[in-house]
Design a protein around this nucleic acid. Structure first.
Length: 599
RNA sequence: GCGCCCGUAGCUCAGUUGGAUAGAGCAACUGCCUUCUAAGCAGUGGGUCGCAGGUUCGAUUCCUGCCGGGCGUGCCA
């Protein structure tokens, strides 16, 4: 909070004030005023909302009504009291009290223009890092060794990556960890296949395809011949006991898988800080079982070691196995060991698990066990789950022959389809340029289509829709960016130089058209949107915001000619163009989507 | 059986601790390219938010029941 009379000094000497973003300032003052009247209210619940209807202003706050309800107070009187302590002079006109207790806030035109100039000066994109920096571990993607990454991995990978990017931009310390499935019963069968049926040439060409072929072959043989099944069991036992030959083969299977994972991650532009697979925790499993047993949380049942949830109605009927009767641990045990390791290693405030919704019960169990095991820990454990990708028939998305769709094939097709559209529009493009463009557009389209729906709903995969280049798609947003770049090209202006000139000359902004004003106000919302994306783990808020922003911009673009205008009108419009491009590209970047320089 | 999720325009989907007049794209219809990329813009039509109750200043949102669908439910993850 600043005590300076001017929220936005023209000089950048005063570091604190010059970097305070407008929405952040309003929100902080609002929280201050509410806390003063209701010290017992949780400041985290005090939200600054964007007005759905501009008639009521730019921002509104409904938190006071919620607080008053909890305290059984008259909401309107409560809001009146808050207003007495709310000072927004310099940035907004006097806040209005409306209806049962809405607080409506209308920005002053000069606050809007100052915010634009500040963004031009600092490159902040109207975003300010959080005052409370947190350490968060994000666990996502998690492919299985010896299985090709398929369409089922895409949501976890893209959601997790996007959340990590947003959290980092908001100033948090983020640790991304790919919990690869590199241990388990499937390796018995794989070892049999590797030893008896390995096609080395195919392994070199398509390692995961070959491993998948081996697995299928042996899996089928097991169903037909008990002897093969027994052989697989023996190989697994040997592996688990540390047989050198089996360990060597297992390591090679891991390595060839890792190379193919890395290829896909490079294609997707996804980077992990760590990739501790399940096997990383093998040595800790026993001590987890021991600790839970000693604490009296786990006990023997039907030959296995089981945690029961007495007194917890939602889990009472669903005990969790932590040791199978054959003595092997399962994924609950591994996940507990992983959780314990992460706590010790990184001391996170939050751990986010990005997996599909079918694992909800598992994570409820996991979190409940951990809470009993280490009640002193106050890590926020979040299961950020998502729905399935469906085909046009409403069934899980598969190939025509009923196989799962491999991620590489999916990305290939996206690029091919994008390339076709590009060549149709621009047949003279050099081959390599067209290919690069196709990659940016094709991969971007797939990612955007995946992030756009509410993550908890199943969505229907639709090539034509995601690449249709109109409507709420990545290409539409990318196109808006290229049109902006095109304006600067046409004007023979270097955008960076233009911005520097604007700042140096301490320019006056002129925004007489409602299209300009609407665009300017929309830009300022960006930071608030990102905060809600992170708090709800929902990048689709960002998608919808970017689409609205692009729509607002194209409307401005149609009605407010830039190059034909003159003087300060033109400079102001150019600034709006530049800031829009910055926010769009920053936003797309947070979704893991690149922007081409032309289309 | 029990648990979780879903049911919003013809279709595909948004809808931020409950908030003011429920939105968008596609499809349909009407305008706009000698004018910064028409991959666009402006506009029209289209809804008992599955059904029935309840909670309150206010419910698509929360609670209860019912109908319909998906997923999960002790030795895969």
């Amino acid at each position: 909070m600043t005590s300076s009379p001017s929220a936005f000094p023209h000089s950048s000497d005063s570091m604190d004030d010059s970097k305070t973003v407008l929405t952040h300032l309003i929100k902080t003052r609002l929280q201050g005023a509410i806390s003063k009247v209701f010290p017992e209210a949780d400041p985290g619940l005090i939200q600054l909302q964007i007005c759905t209807n501009p008639r009521y202003g730019d921002y509104q706050c409904t938190s006071v009504m919620a607080i008053a309800k909890g305290l059984k107070l008259n909401p309107r009187k409560a809001a009146e009291e808050v207003l007495e302590h709310l000072d927004l002079s310099g940035v907004a006109s006097d806040p209005e009290l409306a209806g049962p207790g809405f607080i409506n806030i209308r920005l002053l035109p000069e606050a809007v223009t100052q915010a634009l100039l500040q963004a031009a000066r600092t490159g902040s994109c109207f975003v300010q890092p959080s005052d409370q920096t947190q350490t968060m571990v994000i666990d996502f993607s998690s492919p299985n060794v010896a299985k090709p990454m398929h369409v089922g991995h895409i949501r976890s990978t893209i959601l997790g990556d996007s959340l990590a990017r947003v959290a980092r931009l908001l100033g948090h310390k983020v640790i991304t960890d790919n919990h690869i499935g590199d241990w388990g019963t499937q390796f018995g069968k794989l070892l049999v296949g590797w030893k008896k049926h390995l096609d080395a040439a195919n392994l070199a060409k398509d390692a995961l395809g070959e491993l998948e072929r081996l697995y299928r072959m042996v899996n089928q043989a097991c169903e037909e011949d008990e002897a093969v099944l027994e052989e697989a069991r023996q190989e697994l036992v040997a592996l688990q006991r540390g047989d050198e030959n089996n360990l060597a083969i297992w390591k090679e299977m891991k390595e060839v898988s890792r190379l193919q994972f890395d290829q896909i991650y490079e294609r997707l532009g996804v980077v992990f800080d760590h990739a501790h697979g399940e096997s990383f925790y093998n040595d800790h499993l026993h001590s987890v079982v021991q600790a839970l047993t000693e604490k009296g949380l786990a006990r023997d049942s039907q030959g296995a070691k089981v945690v029961f949830f007495e007194g917890q109605p939602d889990l009472e009927d669903h005990p969790a196995l932590i040791l199978k009767k054959d003595g092997g641990a399962n994924y609950t045990t591994t996940d507990l060991a992983t959780l314990d390791y992460r706590r010790k290693q990184w001391q996170p405030d939050e751990i986010i698990y990005v997996t599909d919704g079918r694992q909800q019960l598992h994570f409820r169990q996991l979190f409940a066990i951990f809470k009993q095991w280490q009640p002193e820990s106050n890590i926020l454990l979040s299961h950020t789950w998502f729905g399935s990708i469906l085909g046009s028939d409403g069934r899980p998305f598969k190939t025509r022959s009923g196989d799962t769709i491999k991620l590489n094939d999916l990305l290939d097709e996206a690029e091919e389809r994008a390339l076709r559209a590009i060549k149709e529009k621009n047949p003279d493009l050099p081959e390599q340029t067209a290919n690069e463009l196709a990659s940016i557009i094709g991969i971007g389209a797939v990612k955007y289509a995946d992030l756009l729906p509410n993550r908890q709903t199943d969505y229907v995969f639709d090539w034509d829709k995601m690449l249709s280049l109109s409507g709420n798609t990545a290409p539409y947003l990318q196109y808006a960016c290229t049109r902006i770049r095109s304006i600067f090209r046409k004007a023979s202006l270097d955008e960076a130089a233009f911005l520097a000139e604007c700042i140096a000359s301490n320019m006056e902004l002129v925004m007489e058209s409602t299209h300009e004003q609407t665009l300017a106000r929309k830009l300022i919302h960006f930071g608030l949107i990102l905060e809600s994306v992170l708090s709800d783990h929902r990048p689709n808020y960002l998608c919808n915001y970017l689409y609205e922003l692009a729509g607002t911009y194209t409307s401005f673009y149609e009605h407010c000619p830039v190059l034909k205008s003159e003087g300060s009108v033109q400079t102001s419009r150019l600034l709006l163009c530049s800031l829009t491009r910055q926010v769009l590209e920053k936003g797309l970047g947070l979704l893991g989507i690149q922007t081409p320089s032309f289309m």
